[in-house]
């Protein structure tokens, strides 16, 4: 029986879609069978982040309304064997899907897959309610900003009200240099304020932009710092204990070269 995990944040633009794509690909690289679902109907994006935008025939609305078989709506990622995408519908609105339809879809997919990851739309309206309806667990993504953490706190409250217990936190786009200067909140601050378990921290990394340009998840990039962060997160989701990354790593070009050769931090 697979596990359904919703990836949510409240605030937009904190990296939910990138996180979903990378965790999905990361889990596949660990030998899992994974479906990623884009629940952001009307503003689909997970397809382009994964580089699968040209392969869409059917979408989420087709799948839940019976326009097509669920199997037909699954787009197989040829680069990651075992990764499937159900894209959002682009021309319909959020009410085209009901909470019960999402529950049914998740229950069907969990029969044949290890993980079902749902990329939740921003906001707390119907789109959010649909996205969390079928979920067993939740991951809350935030960035070290007052607005993003505030929204994360609201989302944690709503998840608990919906009886999705113990959501876990990913803090995205941390800049260690700014934290060191006292110009950015650090992990301890956010952990203390939100009082939830931390699933992972992801450094701000230009490799994410570069790989997203190419439609490739960063997690496949062995040398990238953020890729390592997402690989660690995938491992933790499978139940392995992996210590949090040391963000003080030397992330200059020279530091990366040293790391490639296995010397230096």
């Amino acid at each position: 029986m697979g596990e359904v995990i919703v990836i949510t944040s409240g605030k937009g633009g904190v990296g939910k879609t990138t996180t979903t794509a990378n965790i999905g690909a990361g889990l596949v690289n660990l030998g899992k069978k994974v479906v990623v679902i884009d629940a952001d109907i009307g503003l689909r994006n997970l397809d382009v982040v994964l580089g699968l935008e040209n392969r869409i025939v059917y979408d989420l609305v087709d799948a839940v309304t019976g326009e097509c078989k669920i199997k037909q709506a699954l787009i197989k990622d040829k680069r990651f064997d075992g990764l499937y995408l159900i894209p959002a519908a682009q021309t319909k609105d959020k009410d085209s899907v009901s909470e019960q339809q999402m529950v049914d879809l998740c229950n069907e997919l969990r029969e044949t897959h290890d993980y079902i990851l749902i990329d939740c739309p921003a906001g707390i309206e119907q789109g959010f309610k649909n996205a969390i309806a079928g979920a067993d667990k939740a991951i809350v993504v935030t960035t070290p900003e007052v607005s993003a953490v505030r929204d994360a706190d609201r989302i944690i409250g709503l998840l608990e009200a919906a009886e999705i217990e113990n959501p876990r936190l990913i803090v995205n786009r941390i800049r260690p240099d700014m934290v060191r200067r006292g110009e950015m909140m650090d992990l301890a601050d956010m952990k203390d304020i939100l009082a939830i378990e931390v699933l992972g921290i992801v450094p701000d990394d230009e490799n994410v932009v570069i790989s997203t340009n190419r439609g490739l998840p960063t997690v496949a990039d062995e040398a990238s710092f953020s890729g390592q962060a997402f690989r660690n997160i995938a491992l933790r989701i499978t139940g392995q204990e992996v210590p949090l990354m040391d963000l003080e790593l030397d992330n200059t070009v020279m530091g990366k070269i040293k790391r490639l050769f296995g010397i230096g931090k």
Partner: peptide, 12 residues
């Protein structure tokens, strides 16, 4: 105070 302290206090 550092801006991260300000952020934390405002957030709280």
């Amino acid at each position: 105070p550092s801006s991260s302290d300000v952020a934390r206090d405002r957030l709280k």
